[in-house]
Design a protein around this nucleic acid. Structure first.
Lengths: 170, 170
DNA sequence: CCTCCTGTTCATTTATTTTTGAACTCGATG
DNA sequence: CATCGAGTTCAAAAATAAATGAACAGGAGG
């Protein structure tokens, strides 16, 4: 007979279950806000709430997701540092736990999803500047102004991001 | 060494046109980053670059968009304060100009697209708290912790947003 | 080596979002 | 008060993103 702590898995009351669903829904909204698929919000929400690490199978059952979606969602969450795997002795399966502090979460997201794009934009802008030098000066005036404005936008963005992290308390 | 197309007076050279396309592409990427459709990025980009206000018809022609998409895109851009209409004497048509300063742009976006969601989340969290009081204390412990954490996330978000605006120079 | 168990991959299906275009509203104008 | 030009709306089509699930890879244990 496989005995688990009786308080945890089977005994959630209807009210507690409703709260869990509502909280997960909240994470789904956050995911949507930052442009991530619903399933990713559900996965993170489920792990955020859980009182101990869960396996892929736990998540699939609780959320009714397919294997593929679960695997890919977890991969994304790990890539931004929102979820980590936890070793559980005597169990070959991966166990996943949520990073519940806001700061590393935001940091990971900015690093992986925003900073990459910023770098890309910087390169494009630089390329544009190079071509712009070849353009006849009479025609160049307006474009010059626009490119300069964009460069300032970019500079602002780079200033703000680290500051943002500093403000979010650990 | 670059070979340039000869420029005729009153026309944009090939190089200048290429730069405009590249800049618009850049705005499309930004739009994508913040979860707005490509057409909205194109519209804003076109207006950002333009040396004078453009009509809906100008935009449709330059970008190859349909009337509907142009109208709706401009509406969205106006709703976040990214674009305003300019009166041109003797022309019944609306003329559109881009807001080119970063601060009001970000402010408008946060106000219309982010703050509304934050308020929504606050309500949901409050509702959850209410239900949580009804739950049997033994079962409540973990959920209580999770809800408290989320409330802190929320508080952090509300602190950061105004600060963010303060940092972006006028 | 074979089998079982986990987890990944990816072509296909499904769902969602975006765009189109024709019908419509509205006001100005003859 | 009929018509025109400008702009909006919205059902339908097209494009895009996400989810599914079966095939696959790899490793532990026999």
């Amino acid at each position: 007979m496989n005995i688990q702590a009786p308080t945890r898995p089977g005994t959630t009351s209807a009210a507690a279950a409703a709260i869990e669903r509502e909280l997960i829904e909240l994470f789904v909204h956050v995911a949507d806000l930052v442009g991530l698929p619903r399933s990713v919000g559900e996965l993170y929400g489920c792990l955020f709430i859980a009182s101990s690490p869960l396996t892929m199978d736990d998540l699939m059952r609780r959320l009714g997701l397919s294997k593929g979606a679960t695997s890919q969602g977890l991969r994304l969450l790990r890539s931004v540092g929102a979820v980590r795997t936890v070793y559980v002795p005597g169990d070959r399966r991966d166990h996943f736990a949520a990073e519940r502090e806001l700061r590393p979460l935001v940091a990971g997201f900015l690093r992986e999803k925003v900073l990459a794009r910023l770098r890309n934009s910087a390169e494009r802008l630089e390329a544009v500047r190079a071509v712009l030098r070849e353009v006849d000066p009479a025609e160049r005036a307006v474009l010059d102004d626009r490119v300069r404005r964009l460069a300032r936008w970019h500079q602002n963005a780079r200033q703000v991001l680290p500051l943002l992290l500093k403000v979010i308390e650990p």
